[in-house]
Simulated scan of single mutants.
Amino acid sequence: MAIPQCKEELIVAIHNNHAKLDKALSQIPLDLVYEKTLDGHRKNTKMSVANLVSYLVGWNELVLKWLSRFDAGQEIDFPETGYKWNELGKLAEKFYIDYEDLPYPLLLEKLGKIKEQIVNSVQGRIDEELYGCPWYEKWTMGRMIQLNTSSPYNNARLRVQRWHKENMPAPK
């Protein structure tokens, strides 16, 4: 899919990539979602499917935080207070811990709800606000939203599909 250039394309990308991810996640048996068999977000680490979903929830919540702070006229500390862009593996591990006590079905539900909140926020904005000027360095607001929602959904879907091929027996 091409990089969204307007509000409607962004909304479609978020919805479509989330739906594809949700379908891939639904094929993972519940008794395997906590096994640390996926490559982690830090070099030489492993994570579970539940960790991957926690990562997405964490980033989606950051997007909402950025938008909320922007709307309130407050400074945004990209990517997150206490973390630099070269510490994203460390931030990912924080997200794993943040949601480790949330049962997997509720984690999936949370991701769906947060995605809808982001879509609602995008729907309340005009293309000029989303794509008319840089928001963070050279990136527009729309591009930053896409880089932290629909793109990671697609990446996660590919990871899950690869995991499924490697770990699930072929149907007979």
Rank of each mutant, 00 (worst) to 15 (best):
A156I: 11
E35F: 06
E100S: 12
E93Y: 03
N16P: 01
N86R: 09
S68D: 15
V122C: 02
Y99K: 02
N60D: 13
K110Q: 09
T81S: 08
R159K: 15
T37W: 03
S68I: 06
D39M: 13
V33S: 07
E109Q: 12
K94L: 05
H15I: 15
Y99H: 13
G40M: 09
Q161W: 03
I97K: 14
D39I: 14
K20L: 13
K84T: 15
M47T: 00
A24L: 05
F78R: 10
L25Y: 01
K90H: 07
Q74K: 11
S48N: 13
N17D: 11
L106T: 02
W139T: 10
Q161S: 07
L56D: 00
S121A: 11
E128G: 00
S48Q: 12
G132R: 07
W59G: 03
Q123R: 14
N155I: 14
T140L: 06
P171Y: 12
R143V: 04
N148D: 08
L102K: 09
D71T: 12
Y131E: 09
K165T: 10
Q146L: 09
Y131V: 06
V53G: 02
R157P: 05
E8R: 11
A50T: 08
N86Q: 12
R125F: 06
V12L: 10
Y99I: 06
Y55R: 06
A50C: 09
D22V: 01
Y83L: 05
K138Y: 14
L108M: 05
K172P: 04
V119L: 02
K65M: 13
E137G: 01
A72F: 03
D71V: 05
S151I: 15
L32I: 04
D98P: 00
L130F: 07
N16F: 02
P29F: 10
D77R: 06
I3F: 00
H15L: 12
S121M: 07
L52G: 02
P79D: 13
K43Y: 11
I11N: 04
P169A: 01
D71P: 04
L32T: 12
V53P: 02
C6G: 06
E8V: 01
Y153P: 01
S48L: 12
N154S: 09
M168R: 13
L147V: 06
D71M: 07
M168F: 11
A92E: 00
Y83C: 05
R157Y: 10
R143K: 14
W85K: 12
C133N: 14
V33C: 07
K90V: 11
I3T: 07
P105L: 08
R159T: 08
L107F: 00
F95H: 07
Q117A: 03
V119I: 15
K23I: 11
L21F: 03
E166T: 07
E100N: 14
E129T: 11
L88S: 05
T149Q: 04
N17W: 01
G82H: 10
E109T: 10
P29S: 13
L10W: 03
I11Y: 05
G142Y: 13
H41R: 15
F78T: 09
E129R: 03
I28D: 03
S150Q: 06
Q5A: 05
V53K: 03
I145P: 04
K94N: 01
T81Q: 12
V119H: 01
W135K: 09
Y55I: 03
K110C: 00
I97Q: 14
L130G: 02
P79I: 12
V57R: 05
T81E: 13
Y55N: 11
Q146S: 13
G58K: 10
L158H: 12
L67E: 06
N16E: 13
D98M: 01
S48R: 07
N155W: 14
